[in-house]
Write a protein that binds this DNA or RNA. Structure first.
Length: 535
RNA sequence: GGGCCUGUAGCUCAGUCAGGUAGAGCGUCGGACUUUUAAUCCGAUGGUCGCGGGUUCGAACCCCGUCAGGCCCGCCA
């Protein structure tokens, strides 16, 4: 059974109605690590739906969280906002400084700024959650009731956090962070509590009262999270391993939510995604790849497959080079399989059966539209990479594929795939080994290994190329002919051609590539090869 | 210090919850086909299941210990 179905099954034992939740703090540029959070939740929800449950998927935007520091991508003017809530401060403009105009005219906030492109990507990936803005929820009083319980039972909650996380809370700790005189959550101490007011004093010497029913502040994270489970009614949540460790916020949360009068959701801890060879993703280290950037390279279903095929507790290394080719080709292979037929085989061992089911599940989750069966495009990533490099315009790519019978009509999916492919080829991610490269100098090492027959072929071929018209068809005919004239197999002629022109054992179809190049250059290379072997 | 996750074929991983002959894909090698789309098809290759003990008729799986890597215990998914 696929991991999403295992989770769905376990949810079904608990009841019919479920809310699967995810949440992210919009503190900076989103990256594909965040995509795992969202997609893990989305896929569980889909599996639960498939299992006949009544399920809703929500995405909580943690806009009530404060700005922690002036990040590298922010200008110095943000110093004044450290400690202020992300949903209540202006977004950065191109220079990284606050865009006051949009903030005042449209209410365009820091949180909006980073969230918008991510939501766009989500839409393309086929994720359509119900959005819950955390700051707005506080302001609308959604947290009021549970915040009251938390404040009333401050000592129980303190005990819970101290016991489970084995850390000592300061004497003046209180389960409510009021906004200070500068609308910040830092540098403020709670001095008293009479519902609904939490009295405070800040480091600027100001005092005031925060109404917990109006969102004039927020619950600290370890209480904020369980309170959300409570008022939203979350029954399942996927979260990163940082929250999942013993003593972490889930283990305190599951007890605190019960103090607040609700049941904890079913947890699912997932591992992180790293960029191959670069360690964990971190915006400050600059080794991130955003969902938008990833979507420019691969279609959304392949991005979904990346998450779907790995169980959540497995770390994923996202490889934007050759790994992408393997991943994309794996998708094509999966899409071409007939799982029902495979599973009908009575002789399968339990293991084989499980593997087929997992593959089928991964493909089902990869589709951007729930329930829609994936279509194989019959064109592998490799193949398309090749064609996209050798054919300058799209028409030629399609006619090549059509003449070989690989495709019929050009579907929007194919066009879309080709557009992304061209993007990838021109990006910094495109791997060197996929690049088509015609030598400039003979590869002496390979030429030295030529036997007598091969030398003769090379002589013939040079002459044939020189004589032929410079178009793909003529070139394509002259190469094998060079061997035929000697009663040798066409195969050996191609072997010679690859060695001489590309310094390789084998390679892509040569003729169309050569036709794109200058005849004189190719001839010069062949002649140089000839000279080297006759010495 | 306390805890969590991971360790299985060259690579990526299933299989561990319910113990019953070690399994996929990729790669590699071989063959077939071919005026060769790094293609496709067929076949083969490949593992002291990190290590040591225990329980059991039987352990990759359960228990104890141990090593290695990653992570958490001050809101980084």
């Amino acid at each position: 059974m696929h991991w999403t179905d295992v989770t769905a099954q376990s949810l079904s034992h608990k009841g019919k109605k479920h809310i699967v939740s995810t949440g992210i703090t919009p503190s900076g540029e989103f990256h594909i690590g965040h995509l795992r959070e969202i997609l893990t939740g989305d896929m569980i929800a889909r599996a639960a739906q498939d299992a006949g449950l009544d399920v809703e998927f929500v995405f909580i935007i943690d806009s009530a969280d404060p700005l922690r520091k002036v990040y590298d991508f922010l200008g110095p003017e943000y110093e004044q906002f450290v400690g202020n809530q992300l949903g209540a401060i202006p977004a950065p403009n191109e220079d990284g400084n606050p865009d006051w105009e949009r903030f005042e005219k449209e209410g365009w906030t820091y949180a909006n700024h980073f969230l918008e492109p991510f939501l766009k990507a989500l839409n393309e990936i086929g994720v359509k959650p119900r959005l819950i803005d955390n700051l707005e929820s506080y302001r609308n009083g959604r947290f009021a009731e549970l915040s009251k319980i938390a404040c009333d039972r401050a000592e129980d909650i303190r005990e819970c956090i101290e016991r489970i996380s084995s850390r000592e809370l300061p004497d003046d700790w209180f389960p409510w962070s009021p906004l200070n005189s500068k609308k910040g959550l830092d540098k403020v101490k709670v001095t008293g509590y009479e519902y609904p007011l939490v009295h405070w004093k800040d480091e600027y010497g100001e005092t005031g009262s925060s109404d917990i029913s109006k969102g004039e502040g927020k619950l600290p994270w370890r209480i904020d999270w369980p309170a959300k489970w409570g008022w939203i009614g979350v029954t399942c949540e996927a979260f990163g391993k940082d929250h999942g460790a013993a003593g972490g916020s889930y283990s305190t949360g599951r007890e605190i939510v019960q103090l607040l009068g609700h049941e904890p959701p079913q947890p699912l801890v997932y591992e992180w995604i790293s960029l191959k060879g670069q360690g964990a993703m971190s915006s400050s280290a600059g080794n991130t790849i955003g969902p938008i950037e990833a979507l420019e390279l691969v279609p959304p279903e392949i991005l979904r497959l990346l998450i779907a095929k790995s169980k959540p507790n497995k770390a994923i290394e996202f490889d934007t080079g050759m790994g992408l080719v393997t991943l994309a080709d794996e998708y094509e292979r999966l899409a071409a399989r007939d799982f029902d037929k495979e599973l009908a085989n009575e002789e399968l061992s339990r293991r084989q059966r499980v593997q087929i089911e997992d593959a089928a599940g991964a493909l089902r989750m990869a589709s951007t539209v729930a329930g829609e069966k994936a279509q194989a495009t019959a064109v592998t990533f490799r193949h398309l990479a090749l064609l996209a490099q050798t054919k300058k315009n799209d028409e030629d790519v399609w006619s090549s594929l059509q003449s070989s019978g690989a495709i019929g009509t050009v579907t929007p999916e194919l066009q879309d795939r080709l557009n992304r492919m061209r993007h990838w080829i021109h990006s910094r991610h495109f791997p060197a080994e996929m690049k088509i490269h015609i030598l400039e100098q003979p590869n002496l090492e390979m030429l030295r290994l030529f036997d007598e027959d091969e030398k003769k072929i090379l002589t013939n071929m040079t002459a044939a190329i020189e004589a032929c018209d410079w178009d793909a068809q003529s070139i394509g005919a002259s190469i094998p002919q060079a061997a035929r004239d000697l009663d040798l197999s066409p195969r050996s002629a191609f072997k010679v051609a690859y060695a001489a022109l590309m310094g390789a054992e084998k390679g892509p179809r040569l003729a169309p590539i050569l036709a794109e190049m200058e005849k004189q250059e190719i001839l010069a290379l062949l002649r140089a090869c000839l000279t080297s072997i006759t010495e």
